[in-house]
Design a protein around this nucleic acid. Structure first.
Lengths: 341, 341
DNA sequence: AAGAAATTTCAAAGCGCTTTGACAGCCAAC
DNA sequence: GTTGGCTGTCAAAGCGCTTTGAAATTTCTT
């Protein structure tokens, strides 16, 4: 069933039927009713490809999903998508996901943009000096970046959380509790958030004339296993750190296992603060020793970015170009005063 | 830059350029070279919407993502997507993801199918007597179901793992170790896999004249927290179970925490077998007490389903309509002989 | 009652691509 | 020297929709 058939059925022209469906004013109310009724009965749906070709609008947001045979999937991706989806469903938008090898991301993004398949782009997993930014700027298609790109001029639309501030505050809390030996379990080194979090830690430490000792920083995928390995490493150091900052509750999971296996007590022998993306998967408050965290909902960020993207496509009011969300520092039992040697 | 402009640039007709690009034989090799060269220089990409409109082919797979403000995202979704993507990227396919309220899934799937945006559909989160099956059959569009629908005639294309067999085998192992008091921590009750896993457990128990006692089954979202709660409940029962079957390593995580908090030892006081979807997030072999698991890679299933879907769209050879994958039973340290009272 | 204005409707063009059917140009064959 | 078969190219139609500009109809003015 297409427009032509439907209009013949109704004895109207395609024009009138199209206008009736798209809410144009110059169509008789009685006629519109008749059209709507026929649509209901026939189950007619406009062909999206044709609509897109005619209008140039696709009703969809594009994103590139990094993937490859050896590429590990990331829990955070799904959670973020849930946020985007929550907003998209309200506007009858959908997503076009282009899977791409991580090495091919710039090109993939470009292909997606000029394919005519999407109205706007969403970009994540930002790196320092990210090459995608230049490409996006040349594109004349709306986009929003989740995160930022350290080292690039911040003249692009983004939504980010204050990673540096979060880890600065967390470090200050641990300093106030008397800790002096710190370690940082971070995400992959090239990612922007990892750079900023490290900077946050370093600047808080610097205020006290401290720094991260040799071997007290780890960069790894944020999985349980990597958390375990990193912590085991820290615990073997001659000058064992007593304060751990951790980029994810998933890493914390493995880290805590290592602490327990070493016969140490979390919140007493070792204090730990993790960043909590509010994954439904893992609630820091229900850990054996509830976790002190810096918190910011990844999903909420997804909702907000979808709002901005869809709003821009629909020309619905101006949106702030750049948003930096503060995180909350929530103190629970995994932090305590430095143990007396 | 569109076909028309490109062909004018080359002094050729659109026909010839189009044929040159799509590998038709009736075009001079020299001409083809010239066209390819021009494409490289201009960065021309065909407009997908137009291509789709002309050919009816979209080069994309559609899926519905359940979402709603209160709907929890699911780790397994992301992992599965990674598998689909790994295969899709090889064929230059992409995904169209339509977010939809879980109550609206049948309609959303229908909209997606007749939108002309996709060539094939992928369907997951199957339930017992799933209403989507009838819809899919009426659609004349290729689709593959991940999982099955208990209670429906199995005359649709699917890929599933042998959930019943997996949990039957796991239960048998525990029976052989002398256990008689069992509990099952399962996924949401309406989901097909949960039904089959329970059946697997029950049929193994029935062979010994045993059954799941009152209060020894839990159905919940597969999160850490739910695992903790369910296990706490089991441990408080007057006749405490000694053998636990668990539908996910994520649930197991919380469950093990409860075991530890109760001062019990996993693999000695309590034996546990979990199903392992091979999430990069969580490796059962690196748990404090390595987990005995039934294993089947979710990601591999994604790859395979994408193969079948894309292959069908491209008319590349016949594919088996129905595949049932056996799981592996991997014995590690979380299972042991029943403790002597 | 006639003309102006507003309301409804329509035919046709166009979005960018693929594909059909026709047509030159060329060589081999009888 | 006509016929026939190839090869390489093209003009034009069509995919299903939106939108422009004009036409038909109704309603309002004077």
């Amino acid at each position: 069933m297409n427009l032509k058939q439907l209009s013949e059925l109704l004895g109207l022209s395609q024009t009138t039927v199209s206008r009736a469906l798209n809410g144009y004013p110059e169509v008789n109310e009685a006629t519109r009713e008749r059209v709507l009724q026929a649509v209901k009965e026939t189950g007619y749906r406009p062909n999206k490809a044709a609509q897109r070709l005619a209008t140039g609008k696709a009703g969809s947001i594009g994103l590139v999903m990094p993937t490859a045979p050896d590429h590990q999937s990331d829990v955070h991706f799904g959670e973020f998508l849930a946020g985007l989806g929550e907003e998209a469903v309200r506007h009858d938008f959908h997503f076009v996901i282009m899977p791409a090898d991580p090495d091919d991301e710039v090109a993939a993004l470009r292909r997606l943009a000029i394919s005519g398949n999407v109205d706007a782009l969403f970009v994540a997993y930002m790196r320092g000096h990210d090459p995608r930014l230049a490409m996006l700027k040349s594109l004349s298609m709306p986009y929003v970046v989740h995160g930022r790109s350290f080292g690039s001029e911040p003249d692009y639309p983004y939504l980010d959380i204050d990673n540096e501030g979060a880890f600065y505050d967390a470090t200050r809390l641990l300093l106030q509790l008397g800790h002096t030996r710190f370690a940082l379990m971070n995400g992959p080194m090239h990612l922007d958030f990892a750079i900023r979090r490290k900077n946050g830690v370093l600047s808080a430490l610097a205020e006290r004339g401290l720094t991260l000792e040799e071997g007290c920083t780890s960069h790894a995928l944020m999985t349980d296993e990597q958390g375990l390995l990193a912590m085991e490493h820290f615990l073997q150091l001659p000058e064992r750190p007593t304060a751990i900052l951790c980029s994810s509750t998933v890493l914390a999971l493995g880290a805590i296992r290592a602490v327990n296996q070493a016969g140490l007590r979390l919140g007493e022998d070792i204090s730990l603060i993790a960043h909590d993306d509010v994954l439904p998967l893992l609630k820091p408050e229900s850990f054996s020793v509830p976790l002190t965290t810096t918190r910011s909902s990844l999903r909420a960020a997804g909702v907000r970015i979808a709002q901005r993207l869809i709003g821009t496509v629909k020309h619905a009011g101006p949106f702030p170009d750049q948003e930096l969300w503060k995180t909350e520092l929530i103190v629970r039992a995994s932090t305590g005063p430095v143990p007396q040697a």
